[in-house]
Every structure is written in structure tokens, then in C-alpha cells.
């Protein structure tokens, strides 16, 4: 059992949890993830580590309430417990002095990106950050991100704050030379970023979020096509060379269980517990 120390609503349906997990806190590095199981009947949900404090023995993660599990998770309060957390999983991000790094984060992944920006900054990089969301109400950590980045751009899909969409990056990339680009967020955004950086040959690392079950290399559901080779998102990733990723396939594979996920969320909302009245 893992006790929840603190919860915070960062934006509508976006929550931050700080959880007591000293062994994970001691080991976690930027770029890694955990697998959360709420209760005995729960599924294994991967979430990116957004912070860790070895002294306090805590880790933080930020999640979007999109389906049954994340909605259920969102109902938990400080003092409640999570049944099982496994981690840290996946390879840590490569952090060293690359020179000038462009960090692009979308939606809920702004939170783990903050960790990444801090680490890149500490390693001596010049960090230019872009944070985006669908609408301005979903932006969070703006001040924190501003404080850590050399420069910060904000973008929204509807243009309600900052730039409208990511197309402005064309000019930024045309003007400045970046040594690396790091992107975390929804696949559509990752795909867009890769299209933008490709002509300028900026090495672009994307964090992929394929469907996962075990998260430790045993099932293969997380397989992605990277440069024509089959890679497992959980153990070979989650970060990959974005210019080699077959995004169309990834998108199709992410949608594999959509009808079941909808059913599960619907039943849960109707019945309250998801057990179908049993």
C-alpha cells in the first residue's frame, strides 16, 4: 500500500499526487515511469514520474482523468492508499550538456517535462521551452517553467493563450540552431514536432505512450516500429528517435481497446463501482 501524501488539482481534470514510495523515490530519474494499480481488480496504468524527493521518500505524478482508472484515482484523497506501485520503469532520459535544447511539452506531460527541463538546465544546457494545451484553462506550471527555461513559449490549440498551434515553431527553428529537441505529449503533437524539426535535422527524442500491460518486457503490447525494427516501449523506451517512429501505426495501436475502455468508464459512471451491480 502506498499512502497519498498530497493531492492538488492543477487544472480541470488534471491532478497531481504526491505518494509515499521511498524505494522508488531513491531510484527515480527523469524520463522514467511507474505502474499504478488502484485495487485488486484494477488495471496496470503507466504514469510518468513528475518528481521525486529521496529525503521525504515521496514521488509525484500528474494525470489526466480520461477513463475509468484515472477517474477513480482522481477520487482518492490525502491519506488514502494506492494498492501497488511498481517502478521506476523504463530507461532514464539521456541528460548531458548538448548545448541548446528545445523542449516541447503538451497537456498533462508538462509536469514530467518540468523535471526534464530542470535536469537539462543543471547539466549546463540552454533550454528553450514550449508548453501547450488544448485551451488556456488547461495550462499549468507556467511560472515554474518560466523560471527554469531560458525562454518560454506558450501555445494553445484554439489560440486562447499564446500562439495558436505549433506552426510558429517553423520560424523559431529557421532562425536558431538547436542541438536537440525533446518532446512529451499526445502523439499528434509528437508527430507534428517531428515534422517541424526534420528539415533542420534536429535530433528529436519523443516519449512514447503505447498501451502497456506489464511494463517490463513480458507482453509485447507496447511494441512500436522504430526505423523498421520492433521495439518495446517499456524496456527499450519510453524515449525514441522521433524521426524513425511509425506514428500512424502507434496511433492505431493506441486505439485498440477504445470500445472496451468506453464501456468500462460508462458502466463505472452508471453503477459507481464498475462491478456491474455484483
Amino acid at each position: 500500500m502506498y499512502e497519498i501524501l498530497r493531492t492538488e488539482e492543477l487544472a480541470p481534470k488534471i491532478k497531481l499526487f504526491e505518494v509515499y514510495a521511498p524505494e522508488i523515490a531513491e531510484k527515480a530519474k527523469p524520463g522514467q515511469f511507474i505502474i499504478v494499480i488502484i485495487n485488486e481488480k484494477g488495471e496496470r496504468v503507466p504514469l510518468t514520474i513528475a518528481g521525486y524527493d529521496a529525503e521525504k521518500g515521496s514521488i509525484t505524478f500528474v494525470f489526466n482523468e480520461v477513463g475509468k482508472t484515472t477517474k477513480q484515482l482522481g477520487l482518492l484523497k490525502e491519506g488514502d492508499s494506492i494498492w501497488n506501485i511498481t517502478g521506476p520503469l523504463g530507461n532514464p532520459s539521456e541528460i548531458r550538456n548538448f548545448g541548446k535544447v528545445l523542449c516541447v511539452a503538451g497537456g498533462v506531460m508538462i509536469a514530467p517535462m518540468l523535471l526534464q527541463v530542470r535536469a537539462l538546465r543543471e547539466a549546463g544546457n540552454t533550454v528553450v521551452t514550449v508548453m501547450g494545451a488544448r485551451i488556456k484553462e488547461l495550462l499549468f506550471f507556467k511560472d515554474e517553467m518560466k523560471a527554469l527555461s531560458h525562454r518560454l513559449y506558450v501555445a494553445t490549440d484554439d489560440g486562447s493563450e499564446g500562439y495558436k498551434g505549433l506552426n510558429f515553431l517553423k520560424d523559431v527553428l529557421a532562425e536558431e540552431k538547436f542541438d536537440r529537441c525533446v518532446a512529451m505529449g499526445p502523439v499528434s503533437m509528437l508527430q507534428k514536432v517531428c515534422e517541424l524539426t526534420r528539415p533542420y535535422k534536429v535530433p528529436t527524442v519523443v516519449t512514447l505512450m503505447p498501451i502497456m500491460v506489464d511494463g517490463m518486457g513480458m507482453c509485447g503490447v507496447c511494441r512500436v516500429n522504430v526505423g523498421g525494427q520492433m521495439k518495446f516501449g517499456c524496456v527499450d523506451g519510453p524515449e525514441f528517435d522521433g524521426h524513425l517512429v511509425d506514428f500512424d501505426q502507434l496511433i492505431k495501436r493506441q486505439r485498440m481497446f477504445l470500445p472496451e475502455e468506453r464501456l468500462s468508464a460508462l458502466l463505472w459512471e452508471l453503477g459507481g463501482c464498475g462491478c456491474g451491480g455484483k
Partner: peptide, 24 residues
């Protein structure tokens, strides 16, 4: 087979949606 059997046995998706992990 591992994915299939892990879903069915470990995650008990034969009892979906009582158990959360789906299988199609």
C-alpha cells in the same frame, strides 16, 4: 501469447468489466 494470457489470467480480463483490464 504472453500478452493474451497475462490479460486473461493475471489481470482476469475474462471478468471484464468487473476487473478493469480489457481483452477483445
Amino acid at each position: 501469447a504472453n500478452e493474451f494470457l497475462i490479460r486473461v489470467n493475471l489481470m482476469k480480463s475474462y471478468a471484464f468489466p468487473e476487473y478493469d483490464t480489457p481483452i477483445r
